[in-house]
Design a protein around this nucleic acid. Structure first.
Lengths: 245, 245
DNA sequence: GGATATGTACCGACTGGTTGGTACAGGACC
DNA sequence: GGTCCTGTACCAACCAGTCGGTACATATCC
């Protein structure tokens, strides 16, 4: 023991880690306090010392989640000065895709999940989530504007609306690859979104979608069976969660 | 009373109606059996006469939901011979948008909600949902192909991938307008999707997004507050549910 | 420096209520 | 009288949240 490093890892952080992991897979309602306590090894009384309710735990998770997302995914892409503005957007899209690939399509977007689960049932969560998505959209808008003043995107295009569309489509893409458990769905969507951006490029005559993708992915072709879930991937997330979203 | 019309409305249907309504807003886990029983006025023993478990009730809801969606939204759009193929796709997109508008952005897509809530937690639901989205995508693929052979969409474009993208983006758009409670978000996305299709048109030089929308909607512009929820819209769905999705 | 007090961190039993599900008795209709 | 329905009483498991109490390090006072 001794006083070598007193702050080994504060209990509050332990709770947040466990709860974030569990709720990412099972949702807010699907995760009981007892689950969180068991997973984190913290007693009940201790939990209520740090959080006054499950609701407040949820808020704390959301706060930490969005901070991690901004720091680890959003800003590293958009604030990279070595990349041309349009490439920064591409890198962002690829980043989100890679996160889903690393997770084997398990969990989806934690913010999107909470939005789906709680928006119509808990106004406090709804408001916070709406604000999170708005901020995300605003940051993307900025990135689009940079690409416009750089000349790689047409200035006539409404940056805010395009950004809104990108956010929504990404969320949908994550959800669809979560339900099909096929990363190919997300690959297709990201590729299609890049094509959409390209179409707004200043002088581009527009390329056509199959040419942009990797290795000719299937899409909805013949009536082959769906899913064939990745062996035991359900509920298993590689040890340390790679990163948020 | 009397035998005028014996099948006034079978109990099973009553249960399904109530459960569908409740789960659309509160989700699968957020809706208890007691809620369903209270809402439908059916006793517990009676419920378990028709359904052997809550899970089976969920499956039944899903079956009815997808049937309704195909009959009331998908086919009326895609099977309309009076419309040129590309317009059929537009009409479908508009239909989904209108449904959300009528619902005041409450509920979102019931299939999308279940997918988000259960995909990583219940393999049976996940498989069924994946198949539903696949069938939906296949029907859209067909529609895209018709537009291709008609000449209004470029034949080089991969119909399956485009359809997959449309489904995912629509789901994302519904989710985002559910969380922001602003139909404008969905309007923007639908408009952007139409533009995306236009870009794949055979000879089109591509129009730019603001020109396609209605009345110049805001997007992510200044840092104005979000949401400002529609007066009392939360949880309120206009008497009879207008239609599914 | 020793007794007293205070604040932080923690524990696990307990409460009242809800959950999905069962058992079973009685009614309606043929 | 038997099959098809239906209402009610009941169950164990689980839920979020409360409670009384403990351990301990640091301050306060004499």
């Amino acid at each position: 023991m001794s006083a070598v490093l007193k702050t080994e890892k504060p209990t509050r952080e332990h709770i947040l880690d466990a709860a974030t992991r569990l709720m990412h897979v099972s949702g807010y309602r699907g995760t009981s306090l007892d689950d969180v306590l068991r997973e984190s090894g913290v007693g009940k009384g201790n939990f209520y010392y740090y959080f006054k309710s499950k609701e407040e735990l949820g808020y704390a998770i959301l706060d930490r989640l969005v901070r991690g997302f901004v720091e680890r995914t959003l800003e590293p892409s958009f604030a990279d000065p070595s990349l041309p503005p349009l490439d920064r957007i591409h890198r962002f899209l690829d980043g989100v895709l890679e996160t889903q690939r690393q997770r084997n399509c398990v969990g989806g977007c934690p913010m999107g999940n909470l939005a789906s689960e709680l928006s119509d049932v808990h106004e406090g969560f709804r408001r916070r989530l709406a604000e999170i998505f708005m901020r995300w959209g605003e940051r993307l808008t900025e990135a689009v504007r940079e690409a416009q003043s750089d000349g790689s995107l047409a200035p006539a295009c409404d940056a805010g609306r395009l950004a809104q569309f990108l956010v929504a489509s990404l969320e949908g893409a994550i959800l669809m690859s979560k339900v099909t458990k096929e990363i190919q769905v997300m690959e297709t969507c990201v590729c299609e979104l890049k094509a959409h951006l390209t179409h707004y490029a200043t002088g581009a005559p527009a390329s056509i979608n199959p040419g942009l993708g990797r290795a000719r992915t299937p899409g909805f072709a013949a009536g082959t069976g769906p899913a064939q879930s990745v062996g035991g991937a359900i509920g298993r997330v590689g040890a340390e969660p790679p990163s948020e979203l």
